[in-house]
Design a binder for these strands. Structure first.
Lengths: 163, 163
DNA sequence: GACCTGAGTTGAAGAACTAAACTCATAAAG
DNA sequence: CTTTATGAGTTTAGTTCTTCAACTCAGGTC
């Protein structure tokens, strides 16, 4: 019996992982979301090897996740910092999802070390309550369980035959 | 000036990535969520090297993400299959978040190849509408933008000094 | 007994990661 | 004007991880 499945290689998850799936990449993005901007900050916060940090930053810049911006502190020469683009900041839900999963299943006995809260950068409306990632469909059904969703072919789907 | 920051190493994201951050791990989980169970299925769907698949499955089983279960097809000897535990199924939001990010920024020109829809396994209420990952706080404010949330120390937080 | 199949294991070559030492441009101190 | 300091990388050597292909192993079929 032959069945037709969505080609697992032509998939946005695989493409996403080819950009942010290397070791350290998501941790660099996490630190950037937490305010790190300079080479030395990423290096000392993460303990990543310097050469690897350099190539990761380059990869992330090339992929459009980060941007290399010149800065100059008073009495110092011009240097470069790295900041997230909109594309990079859009990884926040992915990182919150990973954080939540780690908190739930691999937590420190004392509880989570980080809680994500509803607190904007500017002082717009907020409540400081913990934030969770939830699955919600376009019809407004929220808090879907993982079993309540399934993958279906989209407009760019390709198929493969399989036994 | 000395500031105190949450220790970036004592973090659930780092712990989560130590389990599912290796190359292929999340793709294996994705295929399992899509119904793959047997060694050969993972191998042919993903094109991963056999020995690496074997060690990845072992790692995922050891970490509690998957379970090794015996099965026997009629007229064949007993073999082993791999299925997700509850802990593994809980990675669905992470994968949906990655999928969404990939769709938005790295999409195939023809559009996404996979759309996640609200359609449960059993025939409970559902609407077949596309599913998205959203950030929602405990007070019920949904659809938070990435800028509307921030990391705060939790009960298990440790701190590091930094200049 | 010979052959087939799914599920791995082994081994060699190549790519990626780590750690530590080194370079480079500029600024400030002497 | 020479020396020293600093942040931001680069180089190099050693280790670990991935890949690919060939091989093994335990049944079941012919």
């Amino acid at each position: 019996m032959e069945t037709r499945r969505i080609d697992p290689v032509n998939c946005s998850v695989a493409r996403a992982l080819s950009v942010v799936g290397e070791r350290w990449s998501l941790l660099i993005v996490r630190e950037a979301l937490d305010g790190a901007r300079r080479f030395g900050e990423f290096h000392s916060r993460l303990g990543i090897a310097r050469n690897l940090l350099a190539t990761r930053l380059e990869t992330l810049v090339t992929a459009g996740v980060m941007r290399r911006v010149p800065y100059q502190e008073p009495g110092d020469r011009q240097r470069f910092a790295y900041e997230l683009t909109e594309q990079g900041r859009a990884l926040r839900p992915t990182l919150v999802a990973l954080l939540e999963w780690g908190d739930t299943y691999l937590a420190d006995p004392q509880g989570p070390s980080v809680v994500v809260r509803h607190r904007p950068v500017d002082d717009a409306i907020s409540c400081d309550e913990p934030v969770k990632v939830i699955l919600e469909c376009a019809a407004g059904h929220g808090h879907l369980a993982p079993e309540d969703v399934c993958r279906t072919p989209g407009p760019g789907a390709r198929f493969v035959e399989s036994s």
